[in-house]
Write a protein that binds this DNA or RNA. Sequence first.
DNA 1: CCATAGTTGGAATGTCGTTCCATCCATATC
DNA 2: GATATGGATGGAACGACATTCCAACTATGG
Lengths: 229, 229
Amino acid sequence: MRKPDGKRRQDSLTRERVVEASIAILDEDGEKGLTFQALAKRLKTGAGAIYWHVENKSDLTIAACDAIVAGVIAASAAGRSPDDEIRALSLALFDAMDARPWLGSALTQAPGSMPTLRILDHLGRHVRALGVAQQDQWTIVAALLSYVLGIGAQNAANAEMARMHQLERTTFLAEMAGQWAALDPAEFPFVQSMTPQMPEHDDRADFLTGIDLFLEGIAARDRHGEPRG
Amino acid sequence: MRKPDGKRRQDSLTRERVVEASIAILDEDGEKGLTFQALAKRLKTGAGAIYWHVENKSDLTIAACDAIVAGVIAASAAGRSPDDEIRALSLALFDAMDARPWLGSALTQAPGSMPTLRILDHLGRHVRALGVAQQDQWTIVAALLSYVLGIGAQNAANAEMARMHQLERTTFLAEMAGQWAALDPAEFPFVQSMTPQMPEHDDRADFLTGIDLFLEGIAARDRHGEPRG
DNA sequence: CCATAGTTGGAATGTCGTTCCATCCATATC
DNA sequence: GATATGGATGGAACGACATTCCAACTATGG
């Protein structure tokens, strides 16, 4: 990739068009579907031309994430209370990663990159508005981010596995629950006993409960003078 | 891979020896270092022979994880209070993933696999011992797992990036903090203002604080009759 | 001692990311 | 308006990898 600012053709490839096409491929065929061959074909060009606008595949993937994340953050902004802002932003991210499993996977593999920074910063502003002590802010925001991305990454892995087995995500998870049910109750007492109620669980509600636990923990910590910190 | 039980040679390759060698390579050269070529070389054999004992690379990686996770769980067991058991197990997993970044990455990419199940089950037993209501147990355990694996995955990504840039993990992170300091304060007010105190942060302590927040959230929820559930 | 089936070592295959390079084209210069 | 220049292009070439194939090897049972 070199600086693209000089003389352009009319039908020119642009970084934007490349990122746009990448998102379309990722949405249609998943993580594994995004190859420079597929991208070149969709853009009716060669692999070499794409490298003029994009440093490498990692750069491309991060740019795709950033386009989505920027949109999610912009759409999520509103005048709520700080804790509701945290809930809203987290849920918006969850929904985005649920609709596009590749997002969770890519964000996890690119810590410190622009899209992650955006999330970090907005979460941070809300945590700060919550009145958390200065020295605790970073710790709490990092924990929130890890939780959100952790959920997204596992979600992504499930989706990719389901795709590999050519199953719907829900039927794939149901099949997995069935295998867990056959586990040895002596070795896996908890998981085994939980399988009956697993199919009824709502991932989105569970996710939000996790956020609530964090928020309640923060509130409790403030009330009780920061035990164990 | 086929059923290995018939006539063996004396110096025979075994699944155990393959997994053992894989762990050694992963420890020495990281995620990217584990290839069937490298493995064959270390075991003084060919790639084809390895496939007799292992289904594919994913199977191999999961087996490597399982060996480590089983050991960590066994070593972590002790007669503590349920919340301290959760802290101890989580910290033991953090330390293992800190020492072996490939662990976090691999565990995240293999949800529902044996090592993940082990973690899930042991966390579940402790959460149950904590007295959490039946219908909340799964949600809480899943949230804990996501947090732990989310931290591990990002840790792994950082380590892999540092390795790629041929830097120590700490100097790599310090460099990243330096770049964040140069960020536009108008666009990233939180992150930018946090950079001065970042080098002093202790990831391990931050991780434990996150676990504590969860535990405090659970306790608070029990006290206040499960708000927002 | 030989036939058989488990097991091995390495070559072959197909798919990637990435690099290379001959060619193309919009502008700047004359 | 012809031409030189350097940004852009498209596709071939390269090297690394997971996986498959297969000819050869070896321990056991007959």
